[in-house]
C-alpha cells in the first residue's frame, strides 16, 4: 500500500456520479490521491502533467467515448505508458479482448465490489 506523503495519483473517467463517487472513495481509502473527470475530453486534459500513475476508464461516455480515449492515450508518447483499467457494463468476451488488445491493463465488469476494484489496481501498481 502506498504510504501517506507519497500518495500516487489515479484518474477516474466516469460519467455516472454514483459510480465515480464509489470508485474515488474506495481508492482514497486505499491511500491514493484521486482526480475525477465526467467525460473523455476532461479526462485527457487531466491525464497530462498531473503525475497520474493509472487511469480508470468507463467505456460508455458522452461525446468522445472510452474507446476513443484509450486509443488516443496509447498513440500519445506522453500517455502511452500509463496503465489504463477499463471499467464497463458489458461482459462481452469480444469487447474484453478488444480492450486488452487496444492496450488496456485490465478489464473490469460492472457491477463491481470494493475488493475487486482494490485488488485490480494493487496488482497493476505492485
Amino acid at each position: 500500500m502506498v504510504k501517506k506523503g507519497s500518495r500516487a495519483t489515479i484518474l477516474i473517467i466516469e460519467d455516472e456520479d454514483d459510480i465515480r463517487t464509489f470508485a474515488s472513495r474506495v481508492l482514497e481509502l486505499e491511500g491514493y490521491q484521486v482526480l475525477q473527470a465526467g467525460d473523455g475530453d476532461e479526462g485527457l486534459k487531466l491525464a497530462r502533467g498531473n503525475q497520474v500513475v493509472l487511469v480508470l476508464l468507463d467505456l460508455r461516455l458522452p461525446g468522445r467515448d472510452g474507446w476513443a480515449v484509450l486509443s488516443q492515450m496509447k498513440s500519445d508518447p506522453e500517455l502511452s505508458s500509463m496503465p489504463v483499467v477499463v471499467f464497463t457494463a458489458s461482459a462481452a468476451t469480444q469487447q474484453r479482448s478488444q480492450a486488452l488488445a487496444g492496450g488496456a491493463a485490465d478489464y473490469l465488469v460492472k457491477p463491481l465490489s470494493a475488493t475487486s476494484l482494490r485488488k485490480s489496481i494493487a496488482r497493476i501498481l505492485r
Binding site: F22, A23, L29, A89, K110, P111, A114
Partner: peptide, 13 residues
C-alpha cells in the same frame, strides 16, 4: 447494471 453497480459498490464499501 448501472443501478446494480451503485448498489454493489456502495454496499461492499
Amino acid at each position: 447494471r448501472t443501478p446494480l453497480t451503485t448498489i454493489k459498490g456502495y454496499s461492499t464499501m
